[in-house]
């Protein structure tokens, strides 16, 4: 697996001083190959200290990635061990936030969607209404739909749109932790609710899908300069989507992380 390019978008809603969303993108090269952690958290605005909660969660996951996660990768650990380690870290986060609420005598909470790419597998950890999308090119293009976009996560909401589960206030001990095979030429998008609500699934596919097009039949020379340009293009595409979302739903904060997995 080779990560071709990544992009991030992070913006506070107009008129709101502090962005309650947090994101983390950690892409490193180990001797075992590339690995990446991406996470977005949407702090629940109606509760107190939600930016602290979302910040703490991404920070905690990043901490896990560089300490335990990296060592698990180097030790060629099995997928069960990864799932267990992620669950353990989630419990740690949940317990810490619970204690925080007790000591502060307040309620706080955040959603969490995180993606871990290692070797030829992806691991996702999800709770709340942030989303992870996967975009692939259709083998047989349907009219006007050249790219296939699917949602890897389910929103933990009831029929009236109320959030049922989150990190923090709901006290859930379990998050959705899944693993799957990583296919080449795939784009992942992790985003908070404001981002996807203002764009819609199809528009996201239309804007990000073309990034999957790779020059065929010619050797691709990967230089640092080219990598920067690619990052810039991806960042710009996410910015376009973000601006669109901001125009549609200006009250929401936005955070999005995109990753394109290239050919092997």
């Amino acid at each position: 697996m080779r990560i071709q390019t990544t992009g991030v978008y992070w913006s506070a809603a107009a008129g709101h001083g502090r962005n309650q969303d947090s994101l983390s993108l950690q892409h490193i090269c180990l001797r075992k190959g590339e690995c990446l952690l991406a996470a977005v958290c949407d702090g629940i605005g109606s509760l107190t200290a939600s930016q602290e909660a979302s910040g703490f969660v991404v920070h905690c996951l990043t901490d896990w990635f560089y300490h335990e996660g990296k060592n698990l990768i180097l030790q060629n650990s099995s997928r069960e061990l990864f799932l267990l380690a992620l669950q353990r870290r989630f419990c740690h986060i949940q317990e810490t936030l619970r204690q925080f609420q007790i000591t502060q005598n307040s309620e706080t909470g955040t959603t969490l969607s995180a993606l871990l790419l290692i070797g030829n597998r992806y691991y996702l950890i999800h709770i709340g209404d942030s989303r992870i999308y996967r975009i692939r090119k259709r083998k047989i293009p349907i009219y006007r739909q050249k790219y296939h976009i699917c949602r890897l996560t389910e929103d933990d909401k009831d029929q009236e749109g109320r959030l049922l589960k989150c990190v923090g206030v709901s006290g859930e001990d379990r998050a959705t932790i899944e693993t799957g095979r990583l296919l080449p030429q795939t784009c992942f998008l992790l985003c908070t609710d404001g981002f996807y609500r203002g764009n819609g699934k199809e528009r996201i596919g239309q804007v990000l899908g073309p990034l999957l097009e790779m020059p065929k039949g010619e050797k691709r020379i990967r230089t640092a300069q080219a990598a920067t340009t690619e990052h810039n293009i991806f960042d710009r595409r996410l910015e376009l989507l973000g601006e669109q979302a901001m125009a549609a739903a200006s009250k929401d904060h936005m955070a999005a992380v995109g990753i394109i997995v290239g050919a092997r």
Binding site: W10, Q20, V58, K70, T96, Q99, F100, H231
Partner: peptide, 29 residues
């Protein structure tokens, strides 16, 4: 040695102040 790694892109964007409430709390815990 074996734990060496090269960072390709590292971003952490948040306005959560870990040194504030969270940090104090962690120390308490």
């Amino acid at each position: 040695g074996k734990h060496r790694f090269q960072t390709v892109r590292c971003v952490l964007l948040t306005e959560g102040n870990f040194r504030g409430k969270g940090g104090t709390f962690l120390r308490c815990v």
